[in-house]
Design a protein around this nucleic acid. Structure first.
Lengths: 343, 343
DNA sequence: TGCCATAATGTACACGCGTACATTAATCGT
DNA sequence: ACGATTAATGTACGCGTGTACATTATGGCA
């Protein structure tokens, strides 16, 4: 593997000059620039990224922390794959590397360690929850002023970068749509409350009911875990309650799909027996039977935005030592109306 | 950031001893081992991964090369997300880093450069095609004996690591299933022939027809690009040919879903008007209407296997200088029968 | 006790690059 | 023509680790 020294020798300049030419730093004569570039080309030389990282003290990688979800092929979920796609695009367009970091389910994750080992310059944390351990880990990160951004999960730490979607409003819109169609007995199949976005959906659901003067009925609130299986499992309970349900709002498309499968197996006819509004507007939403009315969330955009803002923050910090502006984005959602909510 | 020197001082040993303790190399007294570990803990010390990589001359990263597919959110396709999931699991379990590499559509990709810059120790190439440029790039990699593995795409280079699925057999099984049900006028909606797996499917389709003594009819072979949109586009042509079609074999689930949507919009009733067998057994296959008969492909396993074998190869090469055993895996597929092929 | 093998640890340097600082070359204004 | 700038390049060192080799402790055995 050829190195800087050989290039310098061939071009008849010092190593420092080679470095400067390759990094485009400082004034230089066009003729030497060309000589160096020519020599590099001739020797098939390229900067050693590892050595460069080492000398610079930064890895040039953005880390993406992925949760461990048992028995689920993570990338095959609309939520994560869209987020990751957006992150990937932004990272790539800014010349960074994208390092995937898998949380180990067996041990508490030490985020700070990622920085200590210099594996990454910054992180985006996906699938974070409000579980106590997790909360402490994230807060520690923020306390140390390390550059990172949490995706779609609220924390009350004042120094935390967050990019999220407005799930409260999205849920409100969803439920209001059902109310507007004249349905008043509206159930809710939510995900686990350890995710703030589940709690936000609950808040939106409640606000819509309250506003319409509909009393909340605890018995009509079901809990799943955002998986199709959990939706299917909920079907029997929902089926039992069909007598006091006009419609149901479901926390994501996957659960809705599972629920529909389950209900149909129990002999239901959809959307006649139950109106459904789901959440995410994943690919599948348009080709279920009936197609799902659902809340579109700009996951891809969220990933892109978080990455862009985070890397900008990183670059700014190198230039000035002023504290970086906090990232606090809440993106709007949009209700997509199809057949599952009746016609 | 604390470094080795400080730990050595606190523990009262040399830096080399710290290194040895941390890497578990050579014989050492238990007492010093504990002293070093204690000191490291006290100082919050962790190995600097970048410096370590630099000294060792290897990045510790496996690269995954992703194709650029216009207007498609790559991770949201079953094919890529499953492969990536499998790769991710294997990489993680072996303590490697996973670096995502996005092919730039505007420039020819120089795979060799990835190694020259030491960004990765090995690569897995996804979504590779037989396009001339691509072929040359891959062959160059193999000529230079660089450690990499191509996924699900055949090349005729003798030194190439390949993990693939048996699409010829899978397609044969699919078409044979239709023939076994008594259908003889069987169309084929395939993907682009630049992918060897498309050509393999074609071969399987032909073998099944030939074996049953059915003459092939060029007019019944359609071409899409594995996207849902392309399936939908094919619908009008297929609809026009409905008079000479009993059934159709489709190269993947996404196209089949698009095709079904398109046909239904044109007034078709499925599966009555046309029997369909698709390919991949993606999540969606089970909840389309009708559910898809489809060929299950172990993408996740393929990703895991390729990674495992490649990293093993890498480790072996460090130990001995014997040429590493070639990786040539062809995994079996399995026909999953549902309603779309008739009942 | 003295010798040797092996255990345990220390010394010293390479790895390839970025960059602060020193030095030399060119340019400009008067 | 000569200092004062600024351009252009060179020198030299640090970054934190892995590891070959040198050195010193330890234990076994005759």
């Amino acid at each position: 593997m050829t190195n800087r020294k050989e290039v310098a020798k061939l071009a008849g300049v010092s190593e420092a000059t080679v470095s400067r030419v390759l990094n485009g730093i400082g004034p230089m004569k066009e003729s030497t620039r060309e000589r160096v570039l020519q020599a590099a080309k001739q020797l098939n030389y390229e900067l050693n990224a590892v050595a460069s990282s080492f000398a610079r003290g930064r890895s040039g990688n953005l880390g993406v922390v992925l949760p461990h979800v048992p028995k689920v092929h993570l990338f095959s979920t609309y939520y994560f794959s869209e987020l990751l796609g957006g992150i990937g695009e932004a990272v790539h367009s800014r010349g960074y590397g994208l390092l995937l970091l898998f949380r180990d389910p067996t041990s508490v994750y030490d985020y700070v360690s990622l920085y200590r080992t210099q594996r990454v310059d910054a992180c985006i944390i996906l699938g974070s929850s409000a579980a106590e351990e997790e909360k402490q880990a994230v807060h520690r990160l923020a306390d140390e002023r390390l550059p990172f951004c949490v995706m779609d999960q609220r924390f009350d730490h004042p120094l935390l970068n967050i990019v999220a979607a407005d799930h409260e409003q999205g849920s409100y819109d969803a439920v209001k749509h059902l109310i507007g169609k004249g349905y008043r007995r509206i159930g809710f199949l939510n995900g686990a409350p350890q995710y703030s976005n589940s709690r936000d959906r609950m808040a939106g659901y409640r606000r819509a009911l309250l506003e319409a003067g509909i009393a909340e009925d605890d018995r009509l609130v079901y809990e799943g875990n955002y998986s199709r299986t959990s939706g299917r499992r909920a079907a029997s309970r929902v089926h039992r309650d069909l007598g006091r349900l006009d419609a149901i709002f479901v926390g994501n498309d996957r659960m809705a799909i599972g629920l529909m499968q389950g209900l149909r197996e129990l002999g239901c006819s959809l959307p006649d027996d139950l109106k459904i509004v789901a959440y995410d507007d994943s690919d599948a939403a348009s080709f279920t039977e009936p197609p799902l009315t659902t809340v579109r969330v700009p996951f891809y955009e969220m990933g892109r935005l978080a990455t862009d803002r985070l890397l900008t923050q990183l670059a700014d910090k190198d230039k000035s030592d002023a504290p970086a502006a906090l990232i606090r984005e809440k993106l709007p959602t949009e209700l997509v109306i199809r057949k599952s909510s009746g016609n």
